[in-house]
Design a protein around this nucleic acid. Structure first.
Lengths: 205, 205
DNA sequence: CAGCTGACTTGACAGTGTCAAGTTGATCTG
DNA sequence: CAGATCAACTTGACACTGTCAAGTCAGCTG
């Protein structure tokens, strides 16, 4: 696969990232149950116990994959907020759209990075990854924060709304809808609840 | 569920529901990874292959457990909406509180019933179970629906908000908070976004 | 009573994560 | 250049998982 003949440091070269990429590919192809230490090892062309030297078991691999997943997740949000000349509300909604896009494009990876199971190992690295993603949302929420108000409140409101919609959408709870960017359910109508942030802003100002 | 209670069919008596209860107990004690066909069988006092006669493999058992989980989930929401003399908004917020309570009390079961993996088998039974739970939310949302408006919009807004908050809360995304009914994070401040439903109602009326 | 059917058991198999011990090859030291 | 070192990786084993095939056994039907 990624074997380079010229610079082979040891046996494989960069097994760690090869295993992470193999894991993401497995998630993408076969869902979360397809993510397996042995399958990752096989796909990277090494023996079944090789990953143990780079991750602390399967949970360590999952943590490392989640870290990479958060990087892609952040890129999806940033990518969706393309145009510059848009209102702050439209910008926030675009971020939310990127949030949903990532889940649609990477269902199993989205599931993994928001898995209830707290990630063992790499806790600090993973936390920095999540914080890096969270900053995207935080910046988009900043214009709606009242003076003297804790920004966390609006951030949590927005995050809960878009995360809940995305999670329920992926679980097919809004009826049987095909998962694509075109048919994304009542997304626009749901995020219109965020219009209240502006109204509240105007009335109080 | 559809088994006859009075007559002992053969050897065990009511193995099917015994397996479901064993599964819920396992989820409660050891998390989602503890739910195992063989452990359920052992806890019910039967051989490891006995469950195959009552469920279609592990996914069938998970579906049956989810069905029972939705029943308990509905009860948690109804139980939280106790007092009668409260505003419609407070009633809706109380339902949301019951939503969160259920997840706090049954983390792994909450995870299971909203698992992204579509449940195989029992699809129709499970769907009726979810619909039964959804009715609680629907009724609480009804007073806020505008004439001529699709009720699904408000329902999805509310559901997304409370589900997202609950899911993120359970994933410990709002910092490290101990999971209890007393310390439930910024729950009240987040659901206050639903005040906009009343404001919108008043302005348009 | 003979036979049948459904509930359950027993045994096997492939796949999984994890551990212990062995092998290999790049680099370092003299 | 020769030998030592040591991380990277392999090999083999173990317990555990889901699933399948065949066997056992109780109670019912004819």
């Amino acid at each position: 696969m990624t074997d380079d003949q010229n610079t082979k440091p040891h046996h494989h070269g960069d097994l760690r990232s090869a295993l992470i990429q193999a894991g993401i590919a497995l998630l993408s192809e076969g869902g979360k149950d397809s993510l397996t230490l042995r399958k990752c090892a096989a796909r990277a062309g090494v023996s079944h116990a090789a990953p143990a030297h780079h991750f602390d078991g399967i949970s360590g691999l999952r943590g490392a994959i989640a870290q990479e997943g958060f990087r892609l997740f952040r890129l999806s949000m940033l990518n969706a907020s393309g145009t510059e000349n848009q209102s702050e509300l439209d910008h926030l909604k675009a971020i939310c759209s990127g949030y949903l896009n990532f889940a649609i494009d990477n269902p199993a990876l989205f599931d993994l990075i928001f898995s209830s199971a707290p990630m063992e190992g790499l806790e600090s690295n993973l936390k920095s990854g999540t914080a890096f993603s969270y900053d995207v949302l935080r910046k988009a929420c900043a214009p709606f924060v009242q003076p003297g108000q804790d920004p966390m409140i609006i951030e949590t409101q927005v995050w809960s709304l878009i995360h809940g919609y995305t999670h329920l959408y992926m679980a097919s709870r809004f009826g049987r809808i095909d998962l694509s960017h075109q048919a994304r359910g009542p997304f626009d109508q749901v995020v219109s609840l965020l219009d209240a942030l502006v109204v509240s802003n105007a009335t109080k100002a």
